[in-house]
Design a protein around this nucleic acid. Structure first.
Lengths: 350, 350
DNA sequence: CATTTCACAGAAAGCGCTTTCGTTAATTAG
DNA sequence: CTAATTAACGAAAGCGCTTTCTGTGAAATG
């Protein structure tokens, strides 16, 4: 029978022999040293390409160079429930794009409750070249240590105002645009009394969304009613109770924009229990476009964030940081309105 | 100002000096070599414990020993939609438990479409000590190579009948129990005509569930009606169309057990469009207990699989494989019935 | 008492790579 | 034409660990 195709990875030495040079020289062409002539560089590079050679990442890390691995800090909060698939997709997009550049990602899960993990220690141990953080906020324990290090840190959906380090990069959605799209759409449908069902107030997404929301309202000359702006966090329960509060108001909004789909789902539940119908009695617009939107009742009009895209961009960004620090400090991604059945046109009595 | 606390990891050498022995000896006590006396072993071990020393994983891998990392193959299929949070949770439970044993996991995402990744090559490159595979079936490309290797492979929710290797371990849910619980529950509610809304027929979960379902039906002396057993895969769409077929039958079941929550959601949609009500006209029972169940209309009675538990068990299993191959080849986890609002009691006309 | 065994510890090589430094040959300067 | 410079390459040490092999003194054997 055929001998199995000897799954032995090629080494620098193999390349060196094929090219008739020393390992040193091969290493030098890989690492772009200047003291190698154009002719030998070309010769060696040709062999490298032909053999599809790629230096061993663990050997490379051991000798203090790139490990071709990036750390991914995942936060898990049982309360997020519906939001986990969001992270999964980002991570997937990220990992896949990294893989294409021969990077791999090693994930460090950190639970919301229970013993927090020491990010930096883990990252140093694994010699990762950079870190991507999801679901992490600035008061997370152990973040400080990471911030003091010189590892490039890419934060997802958070922005760097109060970050206690200078190694931070930030990739976030344009929640201002999201707020505007929601308001614009409702306004166009004739709504003039619009409430906000907010998420955790002091987070970047909630804050930027809320401010843009209010500003947009005043752009249109619409009333900004604090009693219509409620909500504690991004969960379904929060949406449930917040909607109850709104319904207790003497005059009610005709539409409510939510800061998460989960909260919107909670709001729908409140409506249903109150014998009200969406969108007949009140229009609801969600945020995130998680899977569930297509299956709610009615299907939820919402603002979509392209998670796979975010993941890919995260990969490109962190690699750029590592290579030459050439990544933009802050990137804001557009979002888009997805129209389903939870908003209706009404007669504006303006 | 204080010097930063020198985040330099300790090395074997440090320990050796503290203990007054050679690095060799320290290494030997760590790796349980027999040629070290009890007294020195104790002395060295004391220092190791006191310093909380843990050998550098990348150096360790380079020299051909444990890398303290395990590879996680993640499959992504846009069609799975709702199922992704399932994987996320398993991965989280897995990663966290692994971390507690000083293992880390490096994830290799593999897309359903597009260029498949070469598992084995990636795993060898990273020198992982073992592999956990999720969402992978036996006809996945590149799986063969992995199977031929001697890396321990732990498969999630699939069972090893047709696995082309002898390095496979399997961790799956007890779908037979799941089927029985559903049938038992419906029977107790008075249902005597029960249909099945199935998933991808030739997968382990669907097959074992289906067989147990039929068997349980005949245990009760209930009719097994092939026209009531439909469905192509686990998706919402599949459930949607399958339910339509069921409704076209001359005599209809009073209850339908589904092989996934997503399919159940699709079935609910069909009912709604047909002007039928669940559970009044027909009872539905889902499978998986994904987040969405609490938010459907009515809330879905279903069979829960404890994903975090599965993740933790996966970690324990793969570590046991690595340490001494002492893990059971196949483990089947119990599932549990979660009663919500989608099944009603009916008068049995038995 | 001389010799073989054995238990124990350390020296050294090696994993695949990076990087410093030395060496040679070609080039320029004096 | 010799001395100083530079360009191009390779030898070798080192990253932190494992493992083999060698060496020592003590115990056991004849």
């Amino acid at each position: 029978m055929d001998a199995p195709p000897a799954r032995k990875a090629k080494t620098l030495k193999d390349i060196a022999e094929l090219a008739g040079v020393s390992v040193t020289t091969v290493s030098k062409v890989i690492n772009n040293y200047s003291d190698v002539s154009e002719s030998t560089r070309a010769k060696v590079q040709a062999i490298i390409n032909q053999q599809a050679f790629c230096p061993d990442p663990v050997a490379s890390s051991l000798s203090g160079k790139a490990s071709y691995s990036i750390g991914v800090i995942l936060r898990y909060n049982p309360v997020w429930g519906l939001h986990h698939s969001f992270f999964y997709k980002v991570m997937f997009g990220l990992g896949r794009r990294l893989g294409q550049s021969n990077y791999d990602c090693v994930v460090f899960p950190d639970a919301w409750l229970g013993e927090p993990v020491d990010y930096l220690e883990k990252c140093v141990r694994r010699r990762v070249d950079g870190v991507v953080l999801m679901g992490v906020d600035f008061d997370s324990p152990n973040l400080e240590a990471l911030a003091q290090s010189d590892l490039p840190c890419l934060f997802i959906d958070i922005v760097g105002d109060s970050y206690p380090g200078n190694n931070g990069y930030f990739l976030a959605w344009d929640h201002q645009q999201g707020a505007c799209q929601a308001v614009d759409y409702l306004y166009a449908l004739g709504h003039r009394k619009i409430g906000l069902l907010g998420g955790l107030p002091n987070t970047y997404p909630a804050r930027s969304h809320r401010e843009a929301f209010k500003e947009r309202l005043s752009d249109y000359g619409l009333p900004i009613c604090e009693e219509w702006m409620v909500g504690d966090d991004f969960t379904e329960d929060s949406g449930y109770y917040a909607m109850q509060k709104i319904l207790q108001q003497p005059t009610k909004p005709t539409a409510v924009v939510c800061q998460s789909d989960a909260a919107a789902v909670g709001a729908l539940r409140t409506l249903e229990r109150s014998g009200l119908k969406c969108p007949d009695d009140i229009s609801i617009i969600g945020y995130d476009d998680i899977e569930i939107c297509r299956y709610t009742h009615p299907a939820l009009t919402t603002i979509r964030q392209d998670t796979l895209l975010l993941g890919r961009l995260a990969a490109d960004t962190i690699i750029a940081c590592i290579r030459d620090g050439s990544a933009p400090r802050e990137q804001i991604l557009p979002v888009s309105l997805i129209v389903r059945d939870s908003c209706r046109r009404i007669e504006s009595h303006a």
